[in-house]
Design a protein around this nucleic acid. Structure first.
Lengths: 225, 225
DNA sequence: AGAGAAATTTAGGCATCCCTAAATATCTGA
DNA sequence: TCAGATATTTAGGGATGCCTAAATTTCTCT
């Protein structure tokens, strides 16, 4: 495997997380927004990633990028590191849920294979991280599970919360306060432009308005995991 | 506290570890050897460290450097990170003793205050790392304890092993095999140019020859800790 | 003291990864 | 279709931190 830097890791992970399906191309602009850098910087990096031997991405000028198989492998490895670290920080070091992301984001690039393996063993080879995200297997890449954004779920249909976003600590605290956590069943009553109204919120009788900012943190499915 | 990079941390720690007393100057060459870079690179970095506000080192051209109080604080913080991580890796993640150094050396730069605090709590606020080195307190800088290199210990005087070097995995494995670990009492019988002969090795009747390479890994004192 | 050896610094470069500004390519709607 | 809007790339720089080679300073020994 070619050597990867922290910057390279971040690009690969961002491409992975922005590409819904495997064949879908990710735009330079979307990457720039995700990574907090300028689009010009993205272009430069993509050219380097595509020039590596083996290439880490397949890059089409003006069209976008997708991960090569080598890039996909490294990206999933980083995601595995991230999610194992989040669980470790939460379960072993007793971090509050909304603080695990930042620390994991920093450390994920630097832990060794051995560290990864030992933490996984300490945690009992876990399958799910504390936000409800699937922890990919070592080596194997991993398809996204059958979740859809809550924003895309039809009104009236009961939905089970599968996972919540890990990148926004304030939103995460709010969701915890509202008990909107993985495993909970909800029903969308009305969908408004900037919010949805939920009926039958657990432990609450009145309908409940949820801003899009929070809605966008939630992924749901028909059944629990 | 001024921002520090990994490289800056490494320089500060190397200066700390190479300066026996607080006022002693460390030479560019010694730093270059310790850090595995060229002396010219050291000069460049020292000039930057001295130019920081507040300065991290006091640098006298052609004479050497010592840490400023800000530099000393950061250096001891890194040493605390390193030793806490070594103990964590050994006790919690079950790393073999000779593998903890490399991983700790990488991670020490990236863990947060919170991580440091939580690991310390998990370990029960430990005082000594698995090689016998004192873990400095949070914030407080820390004087070196009353240890001397085994190479400087007089023959005939019983000595208690206080600590063993953590940077050489092969030497460390050998010392473990010989049961030359912190707490063990030894006596130097004869000192030769390239080795010492130990008498009364625990569980062994015959005198025992120890190469300087291993001797230099050991620090001793008159009494146990 | 002074010459040669050793240590240190300066000068000039390279790689990484970011930036802004300007050029160019693609997309969209009348 | 084609002009304006949008997206993307190119060109030229900056900071960090490493390198080699060439100066320069300091040390050591006679």
């Amino acid at each position: 495997m070619a050597a990867t830097s922290q910057a390279v890791d971040d690009y690969l992970k961002a491409i992975l997380e922005l590409s819904g399906s495997a064949t879908e191309l990710v735009s330079s602009n979307a990457l720039a927004a995700r990574l907090g850098v300028r689009a010009a910087s993205v272009t430069g990096m993509l050219q380097k990633l595509a020039a590596q031997r083996p290439p880490l991405v397949v890059y089409q000028k003006h069209r976008g990028v997708r991960l090569s198989s080598a890039g996909k492998q490294r990206a999933w490895e980083i995601v595995r590191h991230h999610r194992l670290l989040e669980l470790f920080l939460h379960n072993i070091l007793k971090y509050p849920l909304d603080e695990v992301h930042e620390e994991a984001e920093r450390l994920e690039h630097f832990i060794s294979e051995r560290f990864e393996d030992r933490v996984a063993a300490l945690l009992g080879d876990p399958k799910i991280d504390p936000h409800g995200h699937v922890i990919p297997h070592k080596h194997g890449t991993h398809a996204f599970p059958d979740e859809v954004p809550l924003a895309d779920w039809p009104a009236g249909e009961p939905a089970v919360i599968r996972s919540v976003g890990d990148r926004d600590p304030a939103a995460l605290r709010e969701l915890q306060r509202l008990d909107l956590v993985p495993g909970v069943t909800i029903v969308v009553k009305v969908r408004n432009p900037n919010a949805v109204t939920l009926s039958a919120l657990p432990g609450r009788n009145t309908p409940f308005r949820l801003s899009n900012e929070l809605v966008n943190q939630i992924a749901v499915a028909a059944t629990s995991r």
